[in-house]
Amino acid sequence: MSNSIKNLTLKIWRQLGPTVKGAFETYNVDEISDEASFLEMLDYLNERLISDGKEAIVFDHDCREGICGTCSLMIDGQAHGPQRGTATCQLHMRKFSDGDSIVIEPFRAAAFPIIRDLMVDRSKFDRIIESGGFITAPTGGAPDANLIAIPKPVSDAAMDSAQCIGCGACVAACPNGAANLFTGAKVAHLNRLPQGQPERFKRVESMVETMDEYFGSCTNHGECEGACPKEISVDVIALLNKDYRKAKFASRKDLAR
């Protein structure tokens, strides 16, 4: 049974460009199916704006199935909206009620400059990945499957971290604009696996130092974990911190030799 949600008031951030001053504008959505996703609701609103000859609201989206990490949005003060473990694209209108007022803002951080309206540039995450989010793999013929034995708990833990889709909700939700959950997830993913061992310490050092150039610092609020659409635990931040310490000691020893 499909019902509809009526009389929504949307306060949406409109901003023409990175250096232009933005402001909230209010829109009404008279009726929308409760089966519509949040982004479909925005599509619906955009269709109407376009047919009225107005500029559509710009927002990021791609796969709409919660795996690409392109959608963003601060919905009522929460990154990816009120449903936990869900990206905005998987948030459905049934989470809202008739007559609700919804405030939609772009993710805000110095590292995530607004491109336009609700769209932000998250390429600073790419800088962190480029500095260490890779492994060295020999080229040539494809190796046999399961050639490298990995204990099941290790592979499970690595996969938990590998779920990170790099959407930036952790940075958006963090009161300090820190990217420790993102970086921690990448480090925990690669550093736990045997394939990630050759660069293990260099990775964590470069990634932490690159992160420092753009993002704030972790003060252990735990908001990132609450906002993460993949519910990645702050345990990865502890692992990041531990490996950073080990890296500092290990590289010092290596340099001394």
């Binding site: 909230f24 009522d76 974990e225």
Partner: peptide, 30 residues
């Protein structure tokens, strides 16, 4: 110095009210 770094990491604050989920009174008022 961490406070300075954190302030710089979000020069433009959220313009609407934040709805914190996990942060405690203690962590917010350190």
């Amino acid at each position: 110095s961490l406070t300075v770094l954190n302030r710089r990491a979000r020069p433009v604050k959220y313009q609407s009210a934040r709805d914190y989920q996990v942060a405690t009174f203690a962590s917010r008022t350190m």
